[in-house]
Design a binder for these strands. Structure first.
Length: 220
DNA sequence: ACCCAGGGTCATA
DNA sequence: TATGACCATGGG
């Protein structure tokens, strides 16, 4: 990965969209819950489920564990996969409490913490890295489908690389910079939402003298 | 009516 | 290692 090109891509996205203020959530625990609930799900749906937890005074690991599976699933309903996610959220909360909550976990080495997260049923690489970056402020670069798609279209990667290979590629090229990784991933997601949904050309490209997609295309 | 969204697990080959 | 089925709501 070319560090220079990666920086330029970042600059173009930042110039187009500005700071994204990720991750939405008032507390680290809310960030973690959101990370689990947003799996393959639109964020607007996650917000409704989180609101249900807040309204029920259940945005807390022990409160979640004290709910019956059915009651929890019902609160998670708007976020989709609610039965699956009820189980995943409980697995995560059990692990979280068992290891001493935020205080203790904050003292752990990043890779140790990552292995711990990945051992939780229902937490895969992307969700683990969301939690590490946005809840624990660790310099971990999150790889998602948008990241693959964008950089593959720019010709900077093939797109079929392993998750860990890509993560290592971005991290070693950019250096361990939590703030940069935070903003970069958020900008990639933002860009994916804004960019042409319809071929061949989007509204933005015709109306604006310069659009991020066009600027990015010039890089290649 | 169809498509997909800020994925992960499990069975199968 | 690598596919495919499955989970499920809500907005375009």
């Amino acid at each position: 990965m070319d560090a220079n090109v990666l920086s330029k891509v970042y600059q173009i996205l930042f110039a187009a969209y500005g700071p994204q203020r990720w991750w939405p959530g008032e507390t680290p625990f809310e960030v973690m819950v959101g990370a689990v609930l947003t799996q393959n799900t639109a964020w607007s749906n996650v917000e409704k489920a989180v609101a249900n937890l807040k309204n029920g005074d259940c945005l807390d690991p022990s409160a979640i564990l004290n709910l019956s599976d059915d009651r929890l699933a019902e609160m998670l309903r708007p976020s989709g996969y609610f039965n699956i996610k009820a189980g995943r959220l409980k697995s995560f909360c059990a692990w979280y409490i068992k290891l001493g909550r935020y205080e203790t976990l904050s003292g752990m080495d990043t890779l140790v913490l990552r292995h711990g997260l990945l051992a939780v049923h229902g937490i895969g690489r992307e969700t683990a890295d969301d939690i590490l970056l946005y809840a624990f402020k660790r310099p971990v670069f999150v790889i998602d489908a948008y990241t693959r798609r964008l950089f593959a279209r720019l010709g900077l990667i093939r797109g079929d690389e392993s998750y860990e290979a890509l993560r290592h590629g971005f991290e070693s090229a950019l250096g361990e910079d939590t703030s940069l990784f935070n903003e970069y991933h958020a900008l990639i997601v933002r860009h994916a939402k804004e960019i042409c949904q319809k071929r061949p050309a989007c509204e933005r490209c015709r109306l604006a003298s310069s659009c991020p997609s066009a600027d990015l295309a010039k890089l290649v």
